[in-house]
Design a protein around this nucleic acid. Structure first.
Lengths: 173, 173
DNA sequence: GTGAAATGGTTTCTCAACAAACTAATTTTG
DNA sequence: CAAAATTAGTTTGTTGAGAAACCATTTCAC
């Protein structure tokens, strides 16, 4: 058996058996999941433990840039199930980061706005988000990032059977 | 407000407010997660309801191509936590798809092999996997797929702080 | 040669996310 | 105009996945 040079060799380890991957070698779904995990972890490390989770950044950003946004709109743009959005918005409301106001002309729905506290936190998170983006750019470069973003958007838009927007999303795992 | 032409317009809907995304527009982590969901769903649809879940395909393939593979090796290559691998292997064992044999020279560990039943199921799943791959290729093309695979591999390998292999993996969501 | 550390695998618990069902409100249909 | 259908958001339950702790075994350090 030959040593597997792609493995971490920071500490002497006995040679590992080479594992055949077959069509898993370039199995995009598996790679997408693994890459997502790494990206998520990188952002979470930068955020540290004293702020909200990376997923909240998405919601905070949507509310920050779109005062009065509704839960349905947040769910659609973040590609999260509405029940997940309910929980996130409730938690942020409890922590004084946003406030929600019933719409006058549609009492089923309400509008969300950032509070002063929420705006402060959002700015801090955004700084970390830009650091995270810089990490990604350093690893793959601007040109490959451009292709990556374009390719992922096409997968998202055209892979579904009727290419409908899957606003509700699916289980990540 | 202008109608958002990127939205599904198969049924007349009132015009939607344009939502500002800011740096979420090209936020790679979000796109990776969404693309993964779509890829997962596409594969799951092809598999239908009478077979195992897409995640089992990974394990079955590793066992099929590497008779005698250990759980640690499976976890590493599939980038799954060992507790998740335990559960998957147990379920496959219970369904008669694999058999596990304690190693003579290391009684902590054991080797997994596909049964005849498991080989049959794996072949059926592999046919579906190739259909799934054909879907992806049709959407993004071979050249962009090559770049996608290369880019994702670099993110997986080089985004971690010490670029160690995160065999344990992280939470997909 | 012995105790400590590491490893392989298991078990239990927590968490995030969605599915499904629900309530209240609005829109559609006849 | 009233009933049916749809929508916005909430609640409850399920599931997948990993974190942490555990046990048994092997390897390492002295």
């Amino acid at each position: 058996m030959q040593p597997d040079d792609t493995m971490d060799m920071t500490r002497a380890v006995p040679e590992r058996r080479k594992i055949e991957l077959g069509l898993l070698e370039n199995f995009v779904g598996m790679l997408l999941r693994a890459a997502y995990n790494e990206a998520f972890e990188d952002f979470a490390r930068l955020l540290g433990s004293d702020t909200l989770k990376p997923g909240f950044f998405t919601v905070l950003t949507l509310v920050a840039l779109n005062p009065g946004i509704t839960q349905v709109e947040i769910g659609r743009e973040a590609r999260r199930d509405k029940s997940s959005v309910t929980k996130a918005l409730r938690q942020m409301e409890d922590e004084g980061l946003i406030r929600r106001v019933r719409l006058e002309d549609d009492r089923r729905s309400y509008a969300s706005y950032l509070t002063h506290e929420g705006a402060k936190l959002h700015r801090r998170m955004e700084i970390k988000a830009r650091e995270h983006i810089a990490h990604l750019d350093a690893v793959i470069g601007v040109e490959r990032k451009r292709v990556l973003v374009e390719t992922l958007n096409d997968l998202i838009a055209d892979l579904p059977p009727s290419a409908e927007e899957s606003a509700g999303g699916t289980r990540a795992s």
